[in-house]
Amino acid sequence: MAFQILLNFILAFVWMFLKTSYSPASFFVGYFFGLLIIYIFRRFFNSRFYLLRVSAVLNLIYIFTLELILSNIAVLKAVLRPKLNIKPGIFAFPTELKEDWEITMLANLITLTPGTLVVDVSPDNRILYVHAMDISDADEAIQSIKNTFEKAIMEVSR
């Protein structure tokens, strides 16, 4: 991916030299044509066309923002309720992610969405221990994390 971005930048500069105009506009035009060529030759590279990965990152940001708002509302409801009928507890979350930064990212995303909190990571990086505010449906929580965060992170790193 880094190679594709670097190539695209170099192509943009080559375009500026060909045009002998060093304005931002000609840089963008060159970047656009470079993007077009890289798209046409996308099967040439070992990794995916890099714009797909950029869109995956944007998707991850969107999912995170959405989850943040929704779960904050859920916590607000629990706080304002006169009786506390929640059942806190810790469950194990088996993750399929391998890279260090992926696991760190997943742990931070789980922690930043209220209601859940990563307590510990198992030594072999396979299991995340998550403290949940309401553990009455641990399986459902695991599934929802798997479907949203883990999938979106995998989409970025694949």
Partner: peptide, 14 residues
């Protein structure tokens, strides 16, 4: 080739 190819095509667009 992996690098030159792109420069040639960019030149052709120019």
């Amino acid at each position: 080739t992996k690098f030159t190819l792109f420069v040639i095509i960019l030149f052709s667009i120019h």
